[in-house]
Design a protein around this nucleic acid. Structure first.
Lengths: 341, 341
DNA sequence: CTGAAAGCGCTTACAG
DNA sequence: CTGAAAGCGCTTACAG
């Protein structure tokens, strides 16, 4: 194999200086048309490929963004959300010429953590961090002083992008109230997702308030996003003296677990009990009855986060710190009016 | 902000040459203990962070691996498999000090493709390519002359790693035959996944041959991995004069679609009809009856692929071109002996 | 075991 | 509008 051509090889071939070749590559408008053409054909003829490392060293910018995902092997129900976030971010980054360096760790003191890899080695120009299970690690990234956009909720002072959890929960509650349900149970998510869960709870309360109804506080159950916790919560709800006619689980996994228990207990769905979930995972459309849920448009969230970060890198700071993307209620077969009586 | 410390700053602080600092960073064993300690504390005191770009330029290695995933927004059923592959690869790469540059495109003539990004810009030392929907694009990566490991099947002459599809299908067929099923229908996958599907078909045939039974060729249906195609295939199977007592769909999505149609048609599962899937997606455990399926251990596949690539980069070529990772039959509630008679 | 020299392949001012 | 100079921050031989 012969050596790879460099800027100077191309310059020699085109009969110009290597700076001119650099200008052509970087789209400098001051290069004249004929010169540009000559350089471009020389590049093509030689199969020239710029060295990202040399560019990064000389320019101080890597044109790569780090994406940090939570490292939760058991966090199965969010896998679909995660991959769609990445897909959306990748679309935007690629379009704008940036690379996406991925890490599934966010624990800052783990020697193999993203923090160390991206920040310590200066491999990236900025960071996209999925808030995931822990906001604690965000504080560490803080000190790194890198342009950062958080995907999800954070109590820290970072620019963030997240779905409209409040609006989504409002829509579900409004839907159930409009169907005639009053005894609506809620299966809450785990404390690690407190900020998102509070937003959903706010939406729920607002829907009840707008309907001039009281939230039935005796029907609140705690879950942890697993199907098992939804199953257990359903069991406890069935044991109530005055059981719910509708169950709103704060994610699809718990909703599916609740459905399973209700089915085992012989409850007709949605005839006797309606069930709604959140996140609109693939399974929602596959189970029977198919599950009413809230779509978070994760691809759009990821794309928007990347957009905001790249604008920031280009010197255009975001208008707001908190950026909320619309979510959509998907009504399916698992919700219907309560049985008369 | 003060300027970032460089090798020379650290060298001055520690009272050594910058080469010695470089040696400490790269773990050169010839550096004496006291010198190493002095350098390390100087690095810590100054908050030194090496520049990945400068390293890459000087050493010719980026210590980053490109991971190319198929860009299929509709390819929903493999999302879980994909994210687990990436997770496994990331674990291995991180452990060995490599970064993971991700792209969800593999179309080589797309101006925003992975091919262009990774290869043209020399941002990576090697490539991990998920064979996904198209083996065609692999041919283009070929010309790039990068160390490449394919995840999945390929007709090209690349080192590859894939799950034991043949063994998994063998296990399912053997399980159904052992339960007493003879009329076993198969819902095949789409032509894009031809190589994996052929492997599954081989496993199926081998199980029948080992049991001295004939494969009921009249019960072969074509699907395309969507739940809809499984639903339609089930419909056609129900219309047979001699319908199957068991349905083996070559992915979980089609199996769930088939389950839905069978349920709608009032067939008891698994009483009247057993159903098995493939891939062991999250939904398999959530539906009712829970779905017998084949787990592909995607995390292990991704980890192994990264291992092979990194070994290759270290000058240790793989022992075999084709590397097969074990898959596991997960028996759940959807399969049972056929109704007597 | 450690230092002085050279260079990796670009970009960024600065002249002209 | 284009070229000559300098330097980005490392690593890799090569001496000693």
């Amino acid at each position: 194999m012969s050596d790879r051509p460099t800027l100077r090889t191309v310059a020699a071939e085109a009969g110009v200086s290597h700076q001119t070749v650099s200008r052509v590559i970087n789209g400098d408008p001051t290069v004249t048309e004929p010169i540009r053409d000559r350089v471009l054909s020389a590049m093509r003829a030689l199969g020239y490929r710029p060295s990202a490392g040399a560019r990064a060293l000389a320019s101080g910018r890597t044109e790569v963004v780090g994406v940090v995902l939570p490292h939760n092997p058991g966090f199965a129900f969010s896998n679909d959300h995660l991959i769609r976030l990445v897909q959306g971010a990748d679309q935007e980054l690629t379009t704008r010429g940036y690379g996406l360096l991925l890490s599934t760790r966010e624990v800052p003191d783990d020697p193999a953590s993203a923090y160390r890899r991206f920040v310590q080695r200066r491999q990236v120009d900025g960071l996209l961090v999925e808030a995931g299970a822990g906001g604690d690690s965000l504080r560490a990234l803080r000190t790194a002083d890198y342009p950062t956009v958080v995907i999800g909720y954070t109590a820290e002072d970072f620019t963030c992008v997240h779905p409209d959890d409040e609006g989504g929960a409002y829509a579900v509650a409004q839907h159930l109230l409009a169907l005639g349900h009053r005894r609506i149970a809620v299966i809450d998510g785990p404390p690690e997702s407190r900020l998102a869960m509070s937003a959903r709870m706010r939406g729920l309360r607002r829907a009840f308030a707008d309907a001039r109804r009281e939230v039935p506080t005796d029907l609140l159950e705690q879950g942890d996003f697993t199907a098992g916790s939804g199953y257990a919560a359903a069991e406890r709800l069935l044991a109530r003296a005055d059981p719910p006619t509708a169950v709103f689980a704060f994610n699809d996994g718990m909703a599916l677990g609740a459905q399973r228990r209700l089915r085992e207990r012989g409850r007709d769905m949605p005839g006797e009990v309606s069930v709604a979930g959140f996140d609109d995972t693939e399974a929602a459309d596959l189970v029977d009855p198919s599950l009413t849920s809230v779509s978070l448009h994760s691809v759009d969230v990821g794309r928007r986060a990347a957009q905001i970060l790249l604008d920031l890198l280009d010197g255009r700071p975001p208008a707001q710190r908190e950026n909320i993307m619309p979510s959509t209620l998907k009504v399916r077969a698992s919700t219907a009016p309560p049985a008369a009586g």
